[in-house]
Design a protein around this nucleic acid. Sequence first.
DNA 1: AACTTGACTTGGACTAAGTCCAATGTAGGA
DNA 2: TCCTACATTGGACTTAGTCCAAGTCAAGTT
Lengths: 139, 139
Amino acid sequence: MSDLLERLRGRGWRMTAQRRVVAEVLDGEHVHLTADEVHARAAAKLPEISRATVYNTLGELVSLGEVVEVSTDKRAKRYDPNAHRPHHHLICARCGSIRDVHPTGNPLADLPASERFGFTVSGVEMTYRGLCPDCAALV
Amino acid sequence: MSDLLERLRGRGWRMTAQRRVVAEVLDGEHVHLTADEVHARAAAKLPEISRATVYNTLGELVSLGEVVEVSTDKRAKRYDPNAHRPHHHLICARCGSIRDVHPTGNPLADLPASERFGFTVSGVEMTYRGLCPDCAALV
DNA sequence: AACTTGACTTGGACTAAGTCCAATGTAGGA
DNA sequence: TCCTACATTGGACTTAGTCCAAGTCAAGTT
Ligand SMILES: [Mn+2]
Ligand SMILES: [Mn+2]
Ligand SMILES: [Zn+2]
Ligand SMILES: [Zn+2]
């Protein structure tokens, strides 16, 4: 069972059928669903769940730090439950499939002071682009 | 005068008043305007220019490789005329201001084969996050 | 300079993604 | 069991962007 649900209960989150199915849908590795996909999968288990509730719940999970929003392409945001381990993404330019990746090195150290323009730099996101094995085979 | 216009003319781009003002608006360093901002600035010079033409023109400039789309936050795409020199971005989390940055190092080399999942990796985008000097001073 | 024509522009309708809200329902404590 | 603060809902609304048929015009030809 998802330990996401355990953590949420421990934080005093009021448990409802809707929140439970959303949390269940967001379980697993390499999961990067759009809000609409989350809604479709949640509705398969709880047909009357509304779009508004899915958006509300995703927003709360993001505020709680349990889920991170990923803006991979220019379309819908994706919701990533793998927030407990920081990581970056590798995206297929053709089919859009996404993998979690963990590059070596420290990219923050690669930004010299002369390139910081006085900013206080706190983080960096890396998005690798390429073709997945299936899509590369089609070419 | 913008050498963007020179390059476009050299490529046989039919020159119209609309395309000229869009190209003029997109001149400069650290420029990352939304389509609406481009439209507003273009309309200041050519009041009758339509939103559709701004979108069409931006799309063509992107296809030609003269402008790159940047999806910094989850809101509107931004259009970056600094395409001739590859670079990454540093974004203020509070006010959204964006600077072009050139980190040292080779991030592609930092993704080991075991983290490539069989993908053919062709590029990487890095987005640094932080607070600009003005916003940091407010805290 | 006028002609021609395919490329460009336009306004408005349309779509996708997301937000907002007043009315209704309910989880969980008393 | 009762209460009520919090959660859910449907639908209206907003923002960003796409699409299209009809009108316009840049630039090559005569
Ligand atoms: Mn991820
Ligand atoms: Mn830039
Ligand atoms: Zn693919
Ligand atoms: Zn700022």
